[in-house]
Design a protein around this nucleic acid. Structure first.
Lengths: 191, 191
DNA sequence: TTTTTTTATTAACCTATGTGAATGCCTATG
DNA sequence: CATAGGCATTCACATAGGTTAATAAAAAAA
């Protein structure tokens, strides 16, 4: 199904049917089962993915062996190994399905092709990345100015569904704390 | 002088003289004295700026009254109140000169105009924002996986000049710690 | 120069989160 | 059904960094 993708595009831009079809031809739709990898660290394939259904999450493993959840993407979100997608650096980055997923994927090569040949698509990705960038800036500023407890409450407020669908230790990692600390925070909050 | 800007553009894209001049007409070059504000929180004017010479830095003041340095931009860097520049949210954001500066500025309105009428410029900003985004993602992941001491050492390594030109309490804020803590870290490192 | 203001250092104490280990609970698998 | 592996919870203790306050050093102003 490509309707969710069309709707996602037209939230930000206007696109002709011709351009949309041209864009669609550069993509590929695939299924991923729960716990499968979409991108596995060390693999060469670099894609950006649009989630039609399910939930994916991306994470890195740092030099100390700690896992860091970077992004949690339910349906209607884009997710990618952006470190290497844009920088071409080989980065230890994984994207894994938390639930069974249907996703539409675009290779780096076709991403460039789409941006070069379909102005509306270049605009779309500029806007998408602008938003992702602002989100990331906001995240840095939240880490610095809020405690883990405040960040947890913010996440619940802004994304109540994620809390229900995603295991707690992933949430903890996304918040930048250990599962034990999240437990302690929840206990304090709900006792 | 607009040569630094031309060089900065052509690091990422190819642009014709005609397009460059068209772009230049949308910009304005101004001087800012040390300690002056380029953007003051509460002000309506929203610009993105290219630093020809000097150093600017951007910061927010959070609800608790703490100042957070978000970006430090020496010459040949772009800096902006990106929170509101892209999101149109009114955000409490300041950009101030640490040294006397020459900057070239582009209003939000002209930014859109440039992106809409000069494809090379839209491409340039897409690439610029991609890079800024990757940097910001990397920063989140560093905050989570490195101690303040490690982040300080990283900063020294990747940007030795900034350490020399920027007062220490700004560096501390950029690293997400208090000046006292940076002092303690430096003492531990250099004793 | 002297005075004032800003910045950096140090120290004693406090707090949030990390660490390691034990326990119980679920869920998947044999 | 039994069992193993993963997940959440709890606790005792460790530690990085925050807080407050005093002082020193440097820079700016007079």
């Amino acid at each position: 199904m490509t309707i969710p993708l069309y709707n996602n595009l037209t939230e930000k831009i206007t696109i002709t049917d011709g351009d949309y079809n041209k864009f669609l031809e550069l993509t590929k739709s695939i299924s991923i089962s729960k716990n499968d990898f979409f991108i596995h660290e060390g693999n060469v394939s670099k894609y950006i993915a649009f989630v039609n259904s399910g939930v994916l999450y991306s994470y890195t493993i740092d030099k100390k062996g700690n896992k860091h959840v970077v992004q949690i993407a339910p349906e209607n979100h884009w997710i990618s190994d952006l470190f290497s997608f844009f920088s071409y650096e080989t980065s230890a980055f994984n994207i894994e399905a938390i639930e069974d997923c249907e996703i539409t994927i675009l290779s780096r090569e076709n991403f460039e092709k789409a941006c070069n040949t379909i102005p509306a698509i270049e605009r779309f990705f500029r806007l998408l990345i602008q938003k992702a960038y602002v989100d990331s800036l906001r995240r840095v500023s939240r880490i610095y100015s809020n405690s883990a407890e405040e960040r947890y409450l913010n996440l619940i407020k802004s994304n109540p569904k994620i809390i229900q669908r995603v295991p707690q230790h992933y949430i903890a990692s996304y918040l930048g704390i250990k599962p034990q600390s999240l437990s302690r925070i929840r206990k304090k909050l709900y006792d």
